[in-house]
Design a binder for these strands. Sequence first.
DNA 1: AAGCGGTCCTGTGTGC
DNA 2: TGCACACAGGACCGCT
Length: 275
Amino acid sequence: MPELPEVETIKRTLEARIKGLSVVSAEIFLPKLIRMPGLDEFKTLLTGRKFQGLDRRGKYLLLHLSQGLVMVIHLRMTGRLVYLPASCEVAPHTHLIINLDDGCQLRYSDIRRFGNVSLVPAADLNKLPGLCSLGREPFDLEFTRGYLLKQLHSRRVILKTLLLDQSFIAGLGNIYADEVLFRARIYPQQRSNALTQRQVARLFHAIRDVLSEGIKNRGTTLRDYVDGEGMAGNYQNLLKVHNRENQPCAICSTNIVRLRISGRSTYFCPYCQRM
DNA sequence: AAGCGGTCCTGTGTGC
DNA sequence: TGCACACAGGACCGCT
């Protein structure tokens, strides 16, 4: 599932391909994919616009078009956005095809149909639900140890749950949250207000280090994720705890344990991350 | 007010 | 071998 490192990798690979290209036409095969505006308006607005640059905010991909229009895409669980020659066979579950003026296409496919696409003027970005309520970017200067400490101590939430809260910090999902907690050596069910200064410091660095490594390794492909060129990531080979139930911890050889925290699988080392 | 659970959705894995 | 069902989870929404 695309989290910050995956969306960042898609952003980088796609930007190299589509920047400067214009939209010839768009075909929509799943109406509910388009959150706003209406389908006809979506096609009309998009046609003729040029891709001027790409951005990422949390797990959202922002494609900036000419005349101040922005296409906002959230891939959720199984969404894929791939640049391909028009002659390539269309993959199953392809819900949107954007024809480009170089003879290639930008295709959105999504097995579970959870993802969504919006097209809005840049000035209205802060009105988009979800996007407008995102918390700080982990690599922003404004994301500091002080901010983290203040947020953690102002609430009494299970830490894993808080790491997944996009209005607290933007971009962490289930995979990287587990890896971050392992790196920081913190028990996932620890209450946020009970963290020591030392633990908060470790957490702060773990968030940035794990996400950086994820990006460096072009994301994690457990099942569906590919980048803008259809390539799988490599970070799945470097995961320390996520999806590794009953396998030995690389540090202490204790078997990794799986827990359920607010409806999600959570993997951790019961020795390295003891309370 | 915070937090829980339902909802969306389909491929995969498991058990009988 | 084939069927039925639980499970996977990101974000939103409604309820407590």
